[in-house]
Design a protein around this nucleic acid. Structure first.
Lengths: 338, 338
DNA sequence: ATGAAAGCGCTAACAA
DNA sequence: TTGTTAGCGCTTTCAT
């Protein structure tokens, strides 16, 4: 037996198969010209030796890592998970492997993460959101790879964009409620200084309310993101205590909306009889619960799928032109709102 | 201007800072001995050039990739997301980067994924579940890196294990219901041939029912995994139609349990008044909804945190001894069961 | 269809 | 504290 700590290399396989290392390399590359019999002999030798191709060496020599770096605020969020899932689905056929990082809704953390991920020399970068630290922007620009900002419409795009306006989406929800005759409308969201998409939604709420000449001060800050069900429930309790005449609540996400709904149910407050509730994101819970929750579907999977297509296109053509694709969020009216 | 397509290398930085490439290398390695002034000069030169360390080359030379390969059935599952999140948290301080892959509850896909991930030469591998194709087992064994199987207690462990018995956990739930005097108990889960943890839970249900001398044939197959809220709701409708005298339902996860609960609410069937419901996994929805859902908490974060600790320990000591850590799932009694 | 030579960018090992 | 040499395992390039 040889030393089990040392893995076999192409040279070992080549010797065993009676060919040169170069031929082994070709045998492992799908589209290349190797005699069928030779290839079979090589693959058999490799299997017998337990040989596994070393992508590290391959990447260094060919200057192609087949990595795509992706950052999302949190791993435990079904919306971002859907985007990453669709992205992965669209990339894996090309042999592209996602390198995933979590920013924890923090631009400083994003900067650290991007710096670390860029060292792996990804062939494309997909980030969530359109706001970044100056150094992060510099790092991404210098990297000379396609960058896609998602889930937002940045003021100054780094490169490509696949997103939508969070503010506008919420404005359409406010318009819907106002058209139904509701005027005392509240917003439940996270603290303003972290989650920029959540902040944009709040700003959209305030802008729309002011446009309608309505009171835009029923703003419940539910703490630092992520704002999930528990935070939504607590915020609703607070709202019911401080502004019991509220007619409708728009929540930063379906998760907090479901929490808010549950808080109403525990207090015996009919939804939508006394209060209408709306969320954001079209999470599964909002479609299944009773009453189902009115929401906005920003198409998380579509964002991921389009990002994958764009990456593939750019890597083929090496197109330099920056693309900006707008996703149109859909308003889904359900039982939780009149 | 130089060609923007070509990134600067250590040699470029070294020339600019007036030192040798080796000193630049040391300057970028946190714990190493470089004159403070020299290091400052080097980092300034690097920043000015927009230099980013190339981990690919570094990994090849040092034979340390700082990758940890992780496979989970689905990205869109809060339990596995919690495990990966805790794993990431425990690894990032050491500079270890997770390489994540999704098996889609398919052992063939897992084999393909593991083969691809092993080419990246990870320094440890964490897989979900204890059942794998023979070739997958061979690949993992040959890789000569620590392997951790999680979320299960494998019959024949590959190496390390951090898990629990899915069957036993569900048996304890059955015992609880039986002790309460319930006898007509059903199980809602996915088709038997894919999700092995789900299958184990079903087997645990059947074993416990038979041990109590009860009818174990109220098994609703909700289709191929992932079984989520929609599938749970549909399965509950089917159950209510075919076995309306059922007193309790145990679901393969809290998501399907919540779907089942919603189906009952739509039919006006009181829970737990007429039917008790239990889930698995301690997802947030089950804690927040009304009534809250009785469940089993298998400690997803604890699994991830322990896996991270184990990896760090093994990479330090290069301990060869295989560890098997049992997690004790906790029964959480809530409002959905009497 | 196959092989030989060279080198991707970095760091281990040794030297000063 | 810093420098020199060599080479990690593979693939590009050129040759046959």
């Amino acid at each position: 037996m040889d030393n089990p700590r040392k893995s076999p290399t192409m040279t070992d396989v080549a010797r065993k198969a009676g060919v040169s290392p170069m031929t082994v390399s070709r045998a492992f590359k799908p589209g290349s010209l190797v005699n069928d019999a030779t290839r079979a002999r090589i693959l058999a030798a490799a299997e017998e030796l337990g040989y596994v191709l070393d992508s590290t060496a391959s990447s260094l020599r060919s200057q192609k890592t087949d990595f795509v770096a992706v950052t999302i605020p949190s791993i435990n969020n079904a919306n971002f998970a859907d985007t990453v899932g669709a992205l992965n689905e669209g990339l894996k056929h090309r042999g592209l492997q996602i390198l995933l990082g979590y920013t924890n809704y923090d631009m400083q953390e994003e900067e650290r993460l991007i710096e670390q991920l860029l060292r792996r020399k990804p062939q494309a970068v997909v980030v969530t959101g359109g706001k970044h630290t100056p150094r992060c922007r510099r790092l991404l620009t210098n990297a000379n790879v396609p960058v896609i900002e998602t889930w937002d419409l940045p003021e100054a795009a780094l490169n490509h964009v696949i997103g939508f306006s969070n503010a506008q989406a919420v404005q359409s929800m406010v318009d819907h409620f106002v058209a139904k005759g509701l005027t005392r409308i509240a917003f439940i969201g996270g603290d303003a200084d972290r989650d920029t998409r959540g902040l944009d939604r709040r700003l959209g709420f305030v802008a729309a309310m002011q446009r309608h000449g309505l009171d835009a001060t029923r703003l419940i800050a539910a703490g630092p993101p992520p704002i999930s069900m528990r935070e939504g429930a607590d915020a609703m309790v607070h709202l019911l205590d401080t502004a019991p005449d509220t007619e409708a609540v728009i929540c930063v996400s379906d998760l907090s909306a479901f929490g808010a709904l549950s808080a109403c149910q525990r207090r015996g407050i009919p939804v939508p009889g006394q209060i209408s509730i709306a969320g954001f994101g079209n999470y599964e819970v909002g479609a299944i619960c009773v009453p189902s929750i009115t929401t906005i579907d920003p198409g998380p999977k579509e964002i991921g799928a389009r990002a994958a297509s764009l990456i593939c296109k750019v890597l083929d053509n090496s197109t330099t032109e920056a693309i900006c694709e707008h996703i149109q969020p859909r308003l889904l009216l359900r039982e939780s709102s009149i």
